Computed example of a mutant assay.
Amino acid sequence: MSDPIEAAIFETIAKANPKGVDGKSVEPAEVAKVLQPEQWQRMLPKVRATALGLMRQGKLTITKKGKVVDPNDFKGVTRLRLPTEAETAAALAALPPKANDEFED
């Protein structure tokens, strides 16, 4: 994982939920504060954008008032947590199919 924002997201969740079993969530602002404590507000849009990308890959879940948001239509106060197996499967199923690099005759 080379992206420092991704790393900060997963590290912050791991600190909040060390056993990874109870579905604890964190606010995107908590992650931004880890990355830039003095000017965390500037990092917040980047944290949210990275979280959205991770959600679309099935690696993260974004919730609002405890319910999973639609990644294409949400705004407001959200929280980040690790996805359940069902949420990961649904996210991966929604991805467009990968083009095959090799052509078969």
Results as ranks from 00 to 15, higher is better:
57 Q>A: 09
33 K>R: 15
7 A>W: 07
39 Q>C: 06
63 T>A: 13
20 G>A: 08
29 A>L: 02
101 D>Y: 15
56 R>I: 05
9 I>M: 02
18 P>Q: 03
79 R>G: 01
46 K>P: 03
28 P>H: 01
17 N>L: 13
42 R>M: 10
15 K>A: 12
23 G>I: 00
75 K>N: 13
81 R>L: 05
42 R>Y: 13
64 K>D: 00
32 A>E: 07
68 V>F: 12
45 P>T: 08
26 V>H: 02
47 V>E: 00
5 I>S: 00
58 G>E: 13
11 E>A: 15
2 S>D: 15
78 T>L: 13
18 P>K: 04
16 A>S: 12
91 A>T: 02
8 A>E: 04
69 V>D: 00
81 R>E: 01
84 T>W: 04
63 T>C: 11
94 A>F: 14
100 N>I: 07
33 K>H: 11
20 G>E: 15
90 A>I: 01
67 K>A: 02
38 E>I: 12
68 V>Q: 10
17 N>H: 07
75 K>C: 11
6 E>L: 06
58 G>S: 09
22 D>R: 11
3 D>L: 08
81 R>P: 01
104 E>A: 08
54 L>A: 03
1 M>Q: 15
97 P>E: 05
2 S>F: 04
102 E>L: 15
46 K>A: 14
25 S>P: 00
97 P>N: 07
96 P>N: 08
4 P>T: 06
1 M>D: 15
2 S>Y: 05
63 T>M: 12
95 L>Y: 08
36 Q>V: 05
11 E>C: 09
59 K>M: 06
66 G>A: 02
6 E>Y: 09
25 S>C: 05
31 V>T: 02
31 V>R: 02
21 V>H: 12
36 Q>W: 12
22 D>T: 11
4 P>R: 13
18 P>A: 04
85 E>K: 07
47 V>Y: 00
32 A>S: 10
80 L>F: 12
21 V>W: 10
100 N>C: 10
10 F>V: 08
43 M>C: 10
60 L>I: 05
84 T>C: 03
101 D>E: 15
23 G>D: 00
101 D>N: 13
17 N>K: 06
34 V>H: 03
59 K>E: 13
50 T>P: 02
91 A>D: 00
63 T>R: 02
21 V>Y: 09
97 P>M: 04
26 V>A: 00
89 A>L: 13
59 K>P: 01
68 V>I: 12
38 E>D: 07
90 A>Q: 10
66 G>N: 01
41 Q>M: 10
12 T>K: 06
72 N>R: 06
20 G>H: 14
57 Q>R: 11
36 Q>F: 09
103 F>C: 06
78 T>M: 12
12 T>W: 09
32 A>T: 04
98 K>Y: 11
43 M>P: 04
65 K>Y: 05
95 L>S: 05
